[in-house]
Write a protein that binds this DNA or RNA. Structure first.
Lengths: 245, 245
DNA sequence: CGATGGGTTGATCCGTATCAACTGAAGTGG
DNA sequence: CCACTTCAGTTGATACGGATCAACCCATCG
């Protein structure tokens, strides 16, 4: 394969525009004019840098903040201290983290930055307080959570459908690529910030099987992979879950 | 095994009390006194009967209502018309359905009653309208959705952890049992309203493997199963996901 | 009473885990 | 600046678990 095709700059490294961020509906409540600016200023602390490997919140810790990634990415893991830690989800640029803590008031998992990133933080209690004067804010939060709920069931669906390892990997790549696409970013040439072992843990397969599946997909001309860089050769074929490809 | 131990009446068949229903926070917004009663009366249409096999909503249909089961249960399926339909989730007594439609305004899956049931219906738009005068209602909705989000990621976690079929079945039974327990119902003797094939589809295994796993769990003294009736002999052991049992 | 369909049990084959060896890239120190 | 170390990732060989196909059991219903 031609390595050169993968070496041109990847967009992932740039800051996401505020309008493409998961928190945007909250940061920018359109209907209220210049009050909106105040909200955004006071409610959201913007673009704090975090280092690769840094823990943003820890499982068991009391819930306080929601986070959105404006650069970089993270993994959500269970049993962070255990030898065999389970990867629960990946958060990429523009996405929200911490929603699953609202239910019990405790972060159920640990969030760890996969690379040097920057995050916007919103204090949930402040959000609720502001909502007393701006009820419209709450419907935005509801929208955010519902998107999340749907997102989760989509993932679970594709997992249940995926009979073999290759299908799991395919749906993972499609899922990641779609998420970049939905944020208006380059979804054809992607840098995977997580390791093979982390992907494997997430998919419930071994890293060896993951590696083999990737070469299979490559031989079928669906993707070209070179280390952390993945080129999606055929986006539409990736989504099809028929066995016969 | 002693069949008699499984034949005494199962509580599942009784109506759930309003206070144990997922919609309860919405039906009964405590802080507003006698206005609350009006809300509950006008917003929620109560305990409509549905027959086994009846479709409550269909995938692709525009989102209008949230549903809560006061008796009975349902399955959420994808590709309802296809020969191989995929089971996405099960809804049991007291639980909410339809939340995952808020995001896109369309029901992503089809909801089918597994047995004769009765449901409370709430028109989402009416709920939002009422919220203009009672913003507190919206925080309740947020709470509902967050519980759902957490619930989903819990399930996905246990699936990723479950290396073999037996562990999947074990975590499924633990999950169902816990849900009855959380609603203050009998979680030791359970009637599974869904078929083996439906459970298998949900778990992503075959019905044969499911059957074998059940007998394994039975031999280990964790459960006693007789057709649709399951007796949880050791609730705590069921939750442990260590291989060595 | 025989038919039907859900559920269980059995035998075989294939896919993935496991264990092991190897490769290559990145980082370290002389 | 280059050997040495180290670790992520890939490739190979074997063993085991689950899918598949098939037969059988049993409850329900006409």
């Amino acid at each position: 394969m031609n390595k050169i095709s993968l070496t041109y700059p990847i967009e992932n490294s740039h800051h996401v525009a505020c309008r493409d961020c998961a928190l945007h509906p909250v940061c920018d409540p359109t209907p209220v004019g210049n009050i909106a600016l105040d909200i955004s200023e006071t409610l959201v602390s913007k673009k704090t840098p975090v280092k690769a490997g840094e823990v943003i919140y820890q499982e068991g810790q009391p819930f306080e903040d929601l986070y959105a990634f404006t650069t970089g990415s993270a993994k959500e893991v269970w049993h962070y201290n255990q030898p065999e830690q389970q990867v629960i989800s990946f958060k990429i640029i523009g996405e929200l983290a911490g929603q699953n803590a609202i239910a019990n008031g405790i972060y159920p998992y640990t969030l760890v930055a996969l690379e040097d990133s920057s995050i916007c933080t919103i204090r949930y209690q402040d959000l609720l307080n502001s909502a007393k004067s701006l009820p419209h804010l709450l419907t935005k939060v509801i929208q955010l959570l519902s998107v999340d709920s749907h997102h989760e069931s989509e993932i679970r669906k594709s997992f249940a459908i995926a009979t073999n390892a290759e299908a799991k990997v395919r749906s993972f790549l499609y899922n990641i690529s779609s998420r970049y696409k939905n944020r208006g970013r380059n979804h054809i040439d992607i840098k995977l910030s997580m390791s093979r072992s982390e992907i494997a843990s997430y998919l419930g397969i071994t890293k060896e099987t993951l590696s083999r599946s990737l070469t299979l997909l490559q031989n079928k001309g669906l993707v070209e992979s070179s280390g952390k860089f993945i080129h999606i050769s055929n986006f539409d074929l990736l989504s099809r879950h028929e066995e016969s490809i």
